Measured scan of single mutants.
Amino acid sequence: KELVLVLYDYQEKSPREVTVKKGDILTLLNSTNKDWWKVEVDDRQGFIPAAYLKKL
């Protein structure tokens, strides 16, 4: 499984997104879309802008 580091706080703006904090380490589920990556946060799955994440 691939992990990503959150570079900036992000507040979800729709039900398909998730809220994260800078410094969080998340499981990356899908990065095929270059703009929005799907991650897992506390048993929730959702999207975050790829620019907010860095692969570890």
Rank of each mutant, 00 (worst) to 15 (best):
Y52N: 08
K13W: 05
Y10A: 01
N33G: 09
W36E: 06
L26M: 04
L7E: 03
L29N: 02
V6E: 00
T27H: 13
W37M: 02
E40M: 11
L56H: 05
T27E: 10
V18C: 08
K38F: 14
K54E: 08
S14P: 06
K34S: 12
I48F: 02
V6A: 07
G46F: 14
N33L: 09
I25P: 00
G46N: 02
E2S: 13
I48N: 01
P49D: 02
Y10E: 00
K34R: 13
L28R: 01
A51D: 08
F47T: 03
K1L: 14
K21Y: 15
I25H: 04
D24R: 13
V39L: 04
L56E: 03
K22A: 13
A50I: 04
Q45H: 10
V39S: 00
A50N: 03
V4Y: 06
K55R: 15
K22V: 06
V41W: 07
Q45C: 10
K38N: 06
D35I: 15
L5W: 06
R16E: 11
N30P: 04
T19W: 04
K34V: 12
E2H: 12
L53D: 00
T32M: 12
V20C: 09
E40K: 11
G46D: 02
D24Q: 15
L3F: 15
N33M: 10
R44N: 06
T27D: 06
D24T: 14
V39Q: 00
F47L: 08
V41N: 11
E2P: 12
K38D: 03
Q11S: 12
Q45E: 13
E17T: 07
L29V: 13
V18P: 02
K22S: 08
E40W: 09
K21D: 03
L28K: 01
I25T: 06
S31M: 08
Q11N: 14
W37P: 01
V18I: 14
D24C: 08
V20F: 04
P15R: 08
V39P: 00
I25E: 03
V20G: 05
R44C: 05
S31V: 06
L53N: 01
V20E: 00
E12T: 09
K55G: 04
K38C: 12
L28T: 01
Y52A: 10
Y8C: 12
W36R: 04
Y8F: 12
P15N: 11
